[in-house]
Amino acid sequence: MENIAINEEISINSESKPGEVMLDIQSLKKVYPTPKGDYVVLENLDLQVKKEEFISIIGHSGCGKSTLLTMIAGLNPISGGQILLDEKPITSPGPDRGVVFQSPSLFPWMTALENVLLGVEQVFPQGTKEQRIDICKYYLDKVGLGDSFHKKASDLSQGMQQRVGIARAFALKPKILLLDEPFGMLDSLTRAELQDVLLEVWNQENITAIMITHDVDESIFLADRVIMMTSGPYAKVGDILSIPLERPRDRRSVLEHPDYYSYREYLINFLEH
């Protein structure tokens, strides 16, 4: 319980309240110059994400989903339009946007704890070392790694590594969580496990989240709204499907929900056309 108190202490004092717009993407454009002329990946992309909302973005590979996410992360320059996070335009990467990459991207020479600690040190410099370590342990425990604090990242399985990646992102207490196909490289059993872990931590933290995926079931299970992107070039938001299923969700009740297959059909229909 002591850990939770610490977390409340460092939570970012965001002015926006649930339901208000946390992320505002306005006529976003991304152009990659090529020898044969400019290649327009995204154009006129508009999207609003509300505070504490979970959004998944689905689309064909190569449509620019990941490009969109890296632009929100600030890792990829914007060619036109703008992205406002909490009413401030994004210009560079920063720890207010926690990113979970497709490959776990842990530093293999560090332990699980050290990997998480590296970020916590950056966002919580005013705390004591013990406090920072407690935060790391709290989140590692949450993702089910309570007994692996001091294991080298290179000794963890792919699934375990991605758990650390999730803990690292949540431990930053970001305004928004960006997940770039985080389970794309995992086998389906591990993938389901990690979806549950992610949803469980997210339910408690209530951080606005955007997740890129190409898995229809995953997008329905996790998200409040599924954003369907048109195929590139000139990709934009093609359609949006609301998933008003009750939270907290568990896999079984979602799968057995009478509307589940109509959501699924709707999404597949979009992707096939």
Partner: peptide, 14 residues
Amino acid sequence: VNKDYINVARVLQL
């Protein structure tokens, strides 16, 4: 150096 490592460093503003 692995591009992902550098991206993590950028996100964390090391």
